[in-house]
Simulated assay, not measured.
Amino acid sequence: MGLVAEFEIDCDALPLTGVAAAVPEATVVLQLQFNHGPRPMFLVTVTDGPKQAVEQAFDDAYDVAEWSLVGTAGATRRYQARPALSFEAQLGDAIDDLGELEALARADAIIERIEVQKDGWRQTGWFADREEFGAFSSFWQHHAGFRLCRLTHDGESESSGSGLTDCQQEALRIAYERGYFEIPRRTSLEEIATELGISPSSASERLRRAQTQLVEETVAPTWPPLPD
């Protein structure tokens, strides 16, 4: 089963971070158009932020050679920009082995959204399995800051920002409020299961999955990769 991940990469060498820093009130979403040769064109959607300030930021950006306004819809504007630098020139000082980055681009993964921030990118992506996501997260942990915001299996219901399904959140909340995690416990697994309307074995599995999810989101991304 595939995984859906939302995460932040803390690396201000990534494209267009200077634009996001110059206009912090704007939301800057980037698409890379890889059908434009070795330097993929930037398709940039900007929501909010003064138009003049945004376009001045494009003018001042060291990594933008030229840009054009494609269209406007209310507070949203779409731009196309030609990069001034290759990925090698842009990221060479931040990443030791760009070959690894190129390998990631060929992985079984789809990056669905890139929101540019002043100190890096916030991305949402689909990954074929934990091995593919592990390679991706390990690369960025080694070369930059990496923070996992949400990780779910595809097809699961999810609660934005936590990575837990609604059922997992409910189980954790009831277990916590009833004192299941206290020492000594003030309630039993059977009582938790009764309140949830499920069997004790199902309640136990739900709690374990929720706890595993929280570890993956908070602790696991900070661990260094295990040695081979």
Score class of each variant (00 low, 15 high):
L151N: 04
E100H: 12
I110C: 09
R122E: 06
G71T: 04
A65D: 11
D93M: 08
A103N: 10
H153W: 07
L101H: 12
R122T: 02
A65Y: 07
V70P: 00
L164G: 07
G155V: 03
D96H: 13
L101Y: 12
G145C: 04
L151K: 03
I95E: 00
S137D: 06
A144Y: 02
L101C: 08
Q141H: 13
G125I: 03
A105F: 14
A94R: 05
F58R: 00
G92Y: 06
G74T: 10
G99K: 00
A73F: 06
A61W: 00
S86V: 01
R147S: 14
D59Y: 01
F139E: 10
L172H: 06
F136A: 15
S86I: 02
D108M: 14
D154T: 11
G163R: 06
F139Y: 06
S138W: 09
E100F: 06
D166N: 09
L104I: 06
G74K: 12
E170M: 12
L91G: 00
G99W: 00
D154G: 11
A171L: 09
S162E: 10
A171N: 03
Q169N: 07
C149V: 10
G74M: 11
T76R: 04
S138P: 05
Y62A: 08
R150V: 15
L164C: 09
I114H: 15
R78H: 06
G74F: 14
C167P: 03
E132S: 13
D129F: 10
E132Y: 09
R150T: 15
I95D: 03
W126D: 10
E66K: 01
D119E: 14
G161I: 07
R113W: 15
D154V: 12
F87W: 11
R106E: 12
W126N: 12
Q169W: 09
R147C: 08
G74H: 13
F146C: 03
A73H: 02
F87E: 04
R82M: 06
E131W: 15
A65L: 09
A128Y: 13
V70Y: 04
K118A: 14
R150F: 14
D60Q: 02
E156P: 08
A109V: 05
A94T: 03
F58S: 00
G145A: 00
G99C: 03
S159M: 13
A81R: 01
L101E: 01
A103Q: 13
Q123C: 14
S160P: 09
Q117A: 11
A144T: 02
D154K: 13
F139I: 05
T72K: 11
Q141A: 08
S159L: 11
G155C: 05
K118F: 10
P83Q: 02
A109N: 08
E112W: 06
S137K: 10
V64G: 00
Q117Y: 02
G134V: 07
R122V: 02
A75G: 03
S86Y: 06
V64W: 00
T76Q: 04
L151F: 07
A128L: 09
G125F: 13
Q80N: 07
S157W: 09
F136C: 15
E100Q: 15
A103M: 11
Y62V: 08
E156W: 12
A75R: 07
W140M: 15
A105C: 12
R113Q: 14
A105D: 13
V116S: 13
L101G: 05
T165P: 12
I111Y: 14
F139W: 05
R106Y: 15
S160K: 07
Q80T: 11
